[in-house]
Design a binder for these strands. Structure first.
Lengths: 214, 214
DNA sequence: TAGATTGTTAATCGATTAACAATC
DNA sequence: TAGATTGTTAATCGATTAACAATC
């Protein structure tokens, strides 16, 4: 019916930053904020702040600015934070366990409800009350529990195999930490996190400095 | 003297992806590649591949394409992978320990040489042969060892304090995992990793799908 | 030499910034 | 009402794509 106008990915990436800063403002008891205030804290122009919000219809009032509480809530809705998203972690290695122990995700309504691995010696262990189960029982688990997102923290070599299984089980969101760009069918959303890519960008930026100063 | 032309950050972010794919090609024994081949694998246009490399003068030959070995090496140089970068981890919590155990970074010439924390009970422990030391001894450590990069994996509440110390010690690169955007003086390069931001972007992309299909 | 593919310039597209009328 | 600040359009800037001459 109403054809959704595509919002640029660059805008979407800025939303969590707005959200984080609004959370701070709320905690400090500040109730009103202008595009100029926000822009200073976030390091963009006031124009961009207004333009970003304009993509969603605009959340402010002329002459006043934005209501912190309301803006926080609306951005949260856009990002899907108003309802809990359930996650399973595939791969209980160092990174998988660290992510399971991380408490920040739940604050943002992303909750881990199961961890899966193939190493028999750790099956049955619990991390923050979340059980480590055998990868073979993932299928049953998904049938009995609603799972929104699978987090892939297996080695590069098994990532593709795991991806296939996950897609077959009908999971629609994937957060991939294996150092390979996973691609799936159109209805599956994949976010690839490449930690060493980011480290290399840091390496470049550090090296480049002397040149730009000339 | 020669004023370096600024290369866009978007180009730099693509370099690690080229690099990863070239590593694969090398491993498969492939010696030659064209901009068209690369573009297909990486999901960009051939034009963009050539334009990206043109920023650095171009690495190919007309009528032939690119020599895999040479291109791999040149991109590695740009990213600063030809010499070892030393790193310390500040904060030996779940994430800090997981990063210390991660072996991929060393393959890219980023080597962790020390881990620091303030909790007395874990001081002296070793992770993959890397000692956990008291945060108070960081200053001495930096005097005796060349440290390129500090990885911040402390809670949000102590991140700013840690940042101050690190900057005073003269460390020039910071890889920050605390959920706050750290900013430092111009000569210090900071890469902020916000895992939950990425999760929220995934959340948005999953939600948005039904609309775009209308 | 003929064919292929780059290097490089020009055209297009999209994102950011500026401007200002609308309005609280 | 006057002042402030948004919503929204227009102008600018930068990134991507297209085109093609250079050349291996």
């Amino acid at each position: 019916m109403s054809v959704e106008i595509k919002v640029s990915g660059l805008v979407i990436k800025r939303l969590p930053r707005y959200y984080r800063y609004l959370t701070n403002l709320k905690q400090m008891g500040i109730t009103r904020v202008t595009s100029s205030d926000l822009s200073k804290k976030i390091g963009v122009t006031p124009s961009q702040v207004r333009q970003d919000f304009f993509n969603f219809g605009g959340f402010g009032m002329q002459g006043y600015g934005y209501d912190v509480e309301f803006l926080h809530q609306e951005i949260g809705k856009i990002l899907g934070l108003n309802e809990m998203n359930t996650m399973v972690i595939i791969g209980a290695g160092n990174l998988g366990q660290a992510l399971a122990k991380h408490e920040n995700f739940e604050k943002r309504s992303f909750k881990t409800i199961g961890i899966f691995d193939t190493r028999d010696d750790i099956i049955g262990e619990q991390i923050r009350g979340i059980e480590i189960m055998h990868f073979g029982s993932l299928s049953d688990f998904v049938k009995n529990n609603h799972v929104d997102i699978a987090i892939i923290t297996v080695p590069k070599t098994s990532a593709c195999e795991v991806l296939d299984t996950i897609i077959k089980l009908g999971i629609k969101g994937i957060w991939n930490f294996a150092p390979i760009d996973l691609v799936g069918p159109g209805e599956v959303e994949i976010e690839n996190i490449h930690l060493s890519d980011s480290l290399m960008v840091l390496g470049y930026n550090m090296k480049k400095k002397p040149f730009t100063q000339m």
